[in-house]
Amino acid sequence: MPKNTTISGNVEEYLELLYKLGPNGERVSTSMISENLKIAPASATQMLKKLAVKGYVEYSPYKGVVLTEEGLKIAKKITRKHRLLERFLCDILKIKSDKIHDQACEMEHVLSDDAERALCHLLEQPNKCPGDSVIPECDLKFTTCEECKERKEVDVEEVGKRNENLISILDLNEDKKGRVSFIRGDHKVIRRLLDMGITIGAIISVIKVAPLGGPVEVAVRGSKLALGRDIASNVFIEACDEMGC
């Protein structure tokens, strides 16, 4: 992914909004974008066409727009920085809640990847922002937060970035499966999951998602488990395609 210095703040704002409005790959209408940004539909359409040329979105007139894999990477990255900053402003600096969002918007575009990583360590790997929205997973080539902390002296450039976009178990559709690639949380979380057979590389499938915030029933290593949503949202997988994992 290009560094933030090569992507304008305006482009990041559009991609961030598209991720917010269609987090699971839903198409977003031009009218929704113009209403959220308080701009004319024609202006939104013009920008979407530019984003399509850059390869960040797939745009079809009258059908809306959806993020490409590359656009999704950038959108998740800037959303992650924004929500980490909100957590920092709220928990560490004790900024008033009505000022946090706007302040984070100003800071997210200039926060380096190394600073983002250090901020995550400082906050002890939070999974939600003050508004209770999930913080996207990091894009570094680590399998756990513990591994990241153990190598905190290594710069982001040396660590490298994942090529694929991951999704949490919570976002995996019923009757679909994927390979566990990243676990967010401390050693207690990792140990708890290990005891259940959920380890890096394990193939996991969703059987049923209970309504009204109930648990997620999954199958892993021949066993069926009921996971609370908090823990399911912190296990990230690479979804299997039609050819399998």
Rank of each mutant, 00 (worst) to 15 (best):
236 F>L: 12
157 E>V: 14
128 K>W: 01
181 S>L: 06
74 I>L: 13
122 L>C: 04
45 T>W: 02
151 R>G: 01
94 K>T: 10
108 E>L: 03
193 L>G: 06
10 N>C: 09
182 F>A: 07
225 L>W: 10
163 N>E: 14
189 V>S: 05
126 P>G: 03
113 D>H: 07
241 D>N: 15
224 K>L: 02
32 M>T: 09
234 N>S: 10
75 A>W: 02
190 I>L: 05
56 Y>H: 14
14 Y>V: 07
136 P>H: 10
74 I>Q: 04
112 S>M: 02
225 L>R: 15
241 D>G: 15
34 S>K: 11
234 N>D: 08
168 S>H: 15
89 L>Y: 03
8 S>G: 14
87 R>F: 05
90 C>S: 12
34 S>V: 09
112 S>W: 01
120 C>V: 02
202 A>W: 00
186 D>W: 00
188 K>L: 12
190 I>C: 05
124 E>H: 04
128 K>S: 07
108 E>T: 06
51 L>D: 05
165 N>K: 11
110 V>T: 15
134 V>N: 11
68 T>E: 05
242 E>C: 05
116 E>I: 04
40 A>M: 12
157 E>Y: 02
165 N>Y: 04
8 S>R: 10
212 L>W: 08
167 I>N: 12
233 S>L: 04
136 P>S: 11
221 R>W: 00
15 L>E: 07
241 D>Y: 04
34 S>T: 07
18 L>A: 06
93 L>A: 12
84 L>K: 10
48 L>P: 10
38 K>H: 15
71 G>P: 09
152 K>A: 09
9 G>W: 06
201 G>Q: 12
216 V>T: 10
6 T>Y: 14
140 L>N: 01
160 G>C: 07
27 R>A: 12
41 P>E: 01
161 K>A: 07
135 I>C: 08
9 G>K: 13
178 G>I: 08
138 C>Y: 00
203 I>T: 15
92 I>F: 00
121 H>S: 05
89 L>K: 09
48 L>V: 12
233 S>K: 14
152 K>G: 07
179 R>W: 00
74 I>F: 01
52 A>Q: 03
207 I>M: 13
62 Y>V: 10
214 G>E: 04
88 F>K: 05
78 I>Y: 02
88 F>R: 05
193 L>P: 08
50 K>W: 01
173 N>P: 09
154 V>H: 03
18 L>H: 03
121 H>T: 07
120 C>K: 13
188 K>Y: 06
39 I>N: 02
126 P>E: 00
76 K>G: 06
178 G>T: 08
160 G>H: 05
106 E>G: 13
70 E>T: 14
22 G>K: 09
180 V>P: 00
127 N>W: 06
191 R>A: 10
113 D>P: 01
59 Y>H: 15
150 E>C: 02
176 K>V: 08
5 T>K: 11
120 C>N: 15
121 H>G: 06
70 E>Q: 13
47 M>W: 13
190 I>H: 09
142 F>W: 04
177 K>T: 14
38 K>P: 00
21 L>Q: 02
237 I>Q: 03
139 D>G: 03
114 D>S: 06
164 E>L: 06
151 R>E: 10
134 V>G: 01
146 E>N: 08
185 G>L: 01
158 E>D: 12
227 L>F: 08
151 R>I: 03
61 P>M: 09
93 L>M: 12
111 L>F: 00
46 Q>G: 15
200 I>C: 05
152 K>P: 03
181 S>Q: 13
86 E>D: 03
130 P>A: 03
